[in-house]
């Protein structure tokens, strides 16, 4: 699995020396990662390592105190969250964050708000093809969906924004193995067919590393290892910490 990346080209997303704080607690201490156009990159690490914080920092909520986040040639470090979203970074965040008192359909409409629903009809059919379950439940309120259905909706909503960069925070969380397979297959398909760039956090390290072109390992707010998915899968430290005996 390789991707045609022009090494001279600027990466689509470049995070440099980012430090993020919650009050006086430092959650990220100098993180450097980058994601090239057309790649699937994953981020793995133990609970509390700062993975979700990095995802949210990219979206400016919270903002990085030091360092920089550059997306598509623009410094977005201090940009308000909604303007970052309008540059087509879509996130399916930790906890899914479905609007509980909106229907499934309205949640998807919220995802397509950037284009004022211009491509809504066309795109919603794709999402329903990807997750037929959502089609059945389209007029049900988001808050009454099962956990797995909410996860599908959260990913679907993010895709509705026609993102240049899709951030997925634990897309497999709470899903049955068969659905996880489906979702990973969908990510691979969107990447190969439509060139979608994806940066994902996963506890399911084995599946994530197999899917990804490259990956980073995060420990205590720092990136400690990086490489291709294949390299990390073969790395004994990674195997010991994240693949064997640990969570799968």
């Amino acid at each position: 699995m390789s991707v045609n990346v022009n090494p001279a080209a600027e990466p689509l997303l470049k995070v440099s020396g980012v430090e993020t704080y919650y009050g006086s607690i430092r959650a990220l201490s100098g993180v450097d990662v980058h994601v090239n156009q057309g790649e699937i990159v994953s981020l793995i690490g133990a609970n509390g390592a700062g993975k979700s914080t990095l995802m949210m920092t990219i979206c400016g909520s919270p903002q990085a105190r030091n360092g920089s986040v550059v997306f598509d040639g623009t410094d977005i470090t201090k940009m308000p969250t909604h303007l970052i979203a309008r540059r087509r970074i879509a996130q399916s965040p930790e906890g899914r964050r479905i609007f509980p008192r909106m229907t499934v359909y309205e949640n998807l409409q919220m995802g397509a708000g950037l284009d004022n629903l211009k491509y809504f009809d066309e795109d919603v059919e794709k999402i329903f093809a990807l997750f037929p379950r959502l089609k059945e439940r389209q007029s049900q309120r988001g808050g009454t969906l099962s956990g797995g259905e909410q996860q599908m909706l959260s990913i679907g909503r993010a895709l509705m924004a026609r993102p240049k960069l899709l951030l997925l925070d634990e897309p497999s969380l709470g899903l049955a193995p068969l659905i996880v397979k489906q979702i990973f297959e969908a990510i691979r398909m969107l990447n190969e067919k439509e060139g979608l760039t994806v940066f994902l956090v996963e506890q399911n390290a084995f599946a994530a590393l197999k899917l990804s072109h490259r990956a980073y390992v995060m420990v205590n707010g720092k990136v400690t290892m990086s490489g291709t998915g294949r390299e990390l899968l073969a790395n004994p430290e990674v195997r010991a910490a994240y693949l064997e005996g640990g969570r799968h």
Partner: peptide, 11 residues
Amino acid sequence: QDRKMAALLGV
């Protein structure tokens, strides 16, 4: 319903 999520969607 969720101010942070609304912002993440460009609101």
